[in-house]
Simulated scan of single mutants.
Amino acid sequence: MTLLSKRLQAVYQMVDKDTRVADIGSDHAYLPVELIEEKICQFAIAGEVAPGPISRSKADVDKFGLSKQIDVRLGDGLAVIKPEDQIDTVVIAGMGGILIQNILTRATVDQLSNVKTLILQPNIGEPLVRHWLVENNFEIVDEDIVEEEHHVYEIIKANKVEQAKPLNSAQFLMGPVLMTKKTPTFIAKWQHKLNSYQKAVENMSHAKKIDQAKIDLMNQDIKYIEEIL
């Protein structure tokens, strides 16, 4: 996996074998190239929303001689997917949670018709992504957390089901699978967040105008974190 950063390696590990993948916001098409080279997937779309990234991705795909198996397409979000592509796995990595949520919400029935698996890596706003998944009947089946260059990234894998199991507030916040794995990276992240939240509550309590509702919400998060840690 020479092309992939630690973050993208974690995404790569979640892709099932013999799938057809659309990588939305592909960034040099590194992930599709690796998936095809290692014979994990049979066909991939590298989707880009701007002409600059498109030309870079096309150059990389051509360099590896993979233009027959990787189609680099210009389009907004899942608009690059056509029903005849039979895409069953969609990857959206390296964006904010709000943007990922918007991309998925704007997707049409046709674009999602064959999709069985979503692999999402929000840079921030992970609870928003988990809410969308549950509300749209995607069951979270795996999660990972990695630190790279002083930033912690969470990767969420979800499969389409008839009825997704509900999550509680702590699971939306911290991740249902991550809470059970409790890796050192997970513990370090939430210990840091816990300290930040406690300081914020302390500061808010001494403010001239006290926002009790905000303090109560933060105290609730503190309680969840303390229980899990």
Rank of each mutant, 00 (worst) to 15 (best):
G25W: 06
K116W: 04
D144V: 04
K223Y: 10
Q163F: 05
H131P: 03
K157T: 07
R130I: 09
D110H: 07
L173I: 02
N195A: 15
G97H: 02
L35T: 02
H28T: 12
C41L: 03
A213Q: 11
G47N: 11
N137Q: 03
V61T: 02
S205Q: 09
P184E: 01
F64H: 15
K82Y: 10
Q171C: 02
D76N: 13
V80E: 05
D18M: 02
A44W: 01
N137I: 00
A22T: 08
L99I: 14
Q101E: 14
T19F: 02
A46L: 07
V72M: 04
M14R: 13
K6A: 12
S169V: 06
D62K: 12
E139F: 04
G97K: 07
D144S: 15
D144N: 15
H131M: 13
V21C: 09
K160A: 13
Q198A: 04
I87E: 00
K181C: 02
K199V: 07
Q42S: 12
T108L: 08
N219Y: 00
H150K: 15
I40P: 03
A200W: 10
V115H: 04
E226G: 09
E148I: 02
N159I: 08
T183E: 06
H206Q: 14
G65F: 06
K68P: 01
Q163A: 11
K182G: 04
K17L: 09
I140N: 09
D142I: 09
K6P: 08
E147F: 01
H131E: 15
V72C: 10
A170G: 08
F186Y: 07
S57E: 01
L66P: 04
H28F: 08
M174Q: 10
Y12V: 11
S57D: 01
V146I: 13
T108C: 08
D16V: 15
L217D: 15
I24S: 11
V33T: 13
E126D: 14
V141Q: 11
E84S: 12
A59D: 12
P184A: 00
L173D: 11
M179Y: 02
S57Q: 06
